[in-house]
């Protein structure tokens, strides 16, 4: 069982937006300069706090997309149309603006190279963000754990980090599999349909490989994948899950 990490209280810190990268029409990566940042583990998240002039405050959690090795702290945010925070982060925030956050938060859904592999990373939609942090950490640390990343999207236009994933998929020991649940473009060579036990059995590791699995996304996907992996013989204690919800808007 993971040891709890004792640390001082997390304090709110100001970061500066260096760059705002459009990943898809609804998704932006915010590259932040965070002078007070103490470092993080791949998979952890931050709390963002927005403050209006009249003192009104609102807070939301977002997974860290960057590897611990990177200079900047990167968050990837999907705009939820009726959200209170994500439209501000995606549509309004620009380089030079300050953003208040605290972190790193979360000791359960995190991976260090010392935990070893092989790794199965399964995500849907913005659930890919903490998985990307794990994958980027594995690569940046020069670690050779075998990784399979299975990502579920509605359409090809929804794929986040598409170019980078294609590049990483060409590295030794890294395999990227996409599945589309709605429309697929002509010539699509990836998978089709929702992730189920059959797809996991096909593209995932055999149970005897005893992988560490990280599953992140909407509740429906997380439950289906966790159930499917256990049915395939994977040990429940080697499956880590994180549910995202529309409340994270």
């Amino acid at each position: 069982m993971a040891r709890a990490a004792v640390r001082g209280r997390l304090t709110w810190q100001l970061t500066e937006v260096v760059e705002s990268i459009e990943e898809t029409p609804r998704v932006k990566s915010l590259v932040l300069r965070a002078p007070e940042w103490s470092g993080h583990r791949a998979g952890q998240h931050v709390d963002i706090r927005l403050t209006a002039e009249d003192g009104y405050q609102v807070q939301r959690s977002y997974s860290i997309a960057s590897a611990p090795e990177e200079q900047s702290l990167v968050l990837t945010v999907e705009r939820l149309d009726d959200g209170e925070v994500s439209p501000y982060l995606v549509d309004e925030l620009r380089p030079g603006d300050q953003l208040e956050l605290r972190g790193p938060i979360g000791g359960y859904f995190a991976w260090d190279t010392s935990a070893g592999g092989p790794l199965l990373l399964v995500g849907g939609g913005s659930g890919i963000v903490p998985l990307m942090s794990i994958l980027r950490h594995r690569v940046a640390a020069g670690n050779n754990a075998d990784v399979r990343l299975l990502a579920s999207w509605r359409t090809a236009g929804d794929i986040i980090y598409g170019a980078e994933l294609e590049r990483l998929g060409r590295l030794d020991g890294v395999e990227i599999i996409h599945t589309l649940t709605r429309d697929a473009p002509a010539g699509w060579t990836g998978r089709r349909g929702r992730i189920d036990e059959a797809m996991l059995g096909d593209v995932g590791w055999a149970a005897k490989a005893a992988p560490l699995s990280f599953v992140c996304g909407p509740t429906g996907l997380v439950e289906a994948v966790a159930t499917g992996l256990v049915a395939l013989g994977h040990a429940p204690e080697r499956i880590r899950t994180e549910r995202f919800g529309p409340t994270g808007g």
């Binding site: 403050t51 209006a52 300050q98 953003l99």
Partner: peptide, 9 residues
């Protein structure tokens, strides 16, 4: 600190 351009509903 005030978040530039952020307003309550």
């Amino acid at each position: 600190f005030v978040s530039r351009g952020f307003h309550r509903r």
